[in-house]
């Protein structure tokens, strides 16, 4: 009798162990599949791109077909300008909309905003480009950095709004009560206690939005258009790294293909460095010990 039970429990135990091992293996494999493309993209871009990088790439304008050398200086600066313009629109609007949706969640308008941002985040970016084209390019009668920045800003809004809302939701209600009980007015409670507590997650959301905007090509094709020279004004067409990559990549010239790879590598590095700087600048200044 005793032997029988021992046997049963032994087979049960081993069966459970096998199940557990299989599940664990499945998870590990899935994790590998998830990071494999990322690592592949990163290494392949570095391999292809880093070799074509030189100082001229950062300081010189693109050279015409047939001439070697030249760089993407105007496109690099252009991307910073476009993303900067986009951030000027996207961050304040997204942030404040997120605060409104979470802190005043009972109002009809808040629910409407929530629904619309969900829809907006699902809209293909090229449609947003068309929107910016209709709103800014046609009335101004020209492609411009402003139109490109506007398109990127619209693109950033839903991401920032939703992450802000989600992060604010995680701030415990008791913290708001504590602040209010000290006689701190509600708007100050929101800005200086609640927002500050959620800042880590919100910054991640903003960085994601910036990274996405920095790599967008489609909405820039018919808003900022591209420029082989320096743009002297925000109402002129302006070059950007993704559009430049696109133009170089579809060309038949070997030299331009190499430049496209270098551009891709630089773009990845910019996103990475900007994230790092923002993280370092906004980390919590108090140690826990």
């Amino acid at each position: 009798m005793i032997d029988y039970y021992a046997k049963v429990s032994k087979t049960h135990a081993s069966r459970r162990k096998i199940k557990s091992t299989i599940m664990l293996m499945a998870c590990i494999i899935a994790a590998f599949i998830a990071i494999l493309p990322l690592l592949y993209i990163f290494f392949y871009t570095t391999m292809q791109g880093a070799s074509s990088l030189d100082l001229a790439f950062f300081t010189e304008l693109p050279k015409p077909v047939g001439e070697t050398g030249g760089g993407m200086a105007n496109a690099i600066v252009g991307t910073f300008i476009l993303v900067g313009l986009g951030s000027l629109i996207g961050i304040p609007v997204g942030l404040m909309a997120g605060i409104y949706v979470n802190e005043y969640s009972k109002s009809i308008l808040a629910n409407l905003v929530k629904f619309v941002t969900d829809v907006l985040s699902g809209i293909p970016s090229i449609i947003i480009g068309i929107f910016a084209y209709g709103v800014l390019v046609i009335p101004m009668q020209r492609f411009s950095a402003l139109a490109g920045g506007f398109a990127l800003g619209i693109l950033m809004i839903p991401t920032i709004t939703r992450t802000t809302e989600e992060m604010l939701k995680l701030v415990p209600h008791s913290l708001r009560e504590a602040a209010l009980a000290l006689g701190i007015p509600r708007w100050k409670t929101t800005l200086r206690i609640v927002l500050r507590t959620a800042s880590g997650g919100i910054i991640t959301g903003i960085l994601l939005a910036i990274a996405r905007a920095a790599g967008e090509t489609a909405p820039l094709l018919f808003t900022s258009f591209g420029n082989s020279f320096w743009a002297s004004n925000l109402d002129e067409p302006i070059a950007s790294i993704p559009v430049q990559i696109f133009n170089y990549a579809i060309s038949p010239y070997e030299e331009w293909h190499r430049k496209a790879w270098a551009g891709a590598f630089v773009l990845i590095c910019i996103v990475f460095i900007v994230s790092l700087i923002v993280r370092l600048a906004t980390r919590n200044k108090y140690s826990q010990s």
């Binding site: 415990p172 008791s174 913290l175 000290l182």
Partner: peptide, 22 residues
């Protein structure tokens, strides 16, 4: 309303210090 809350302080059931502050 903020005057009342300053006159009438409150300590809650669960300790709730502001986590981002010293």
């Amino acid at each position: 309303i903020t005057e009342v809350r300053r006159k009438v302080g409150m300590v809650f059931q669960k300790p709730n210090p502001f986590p981002t502050m010293s």
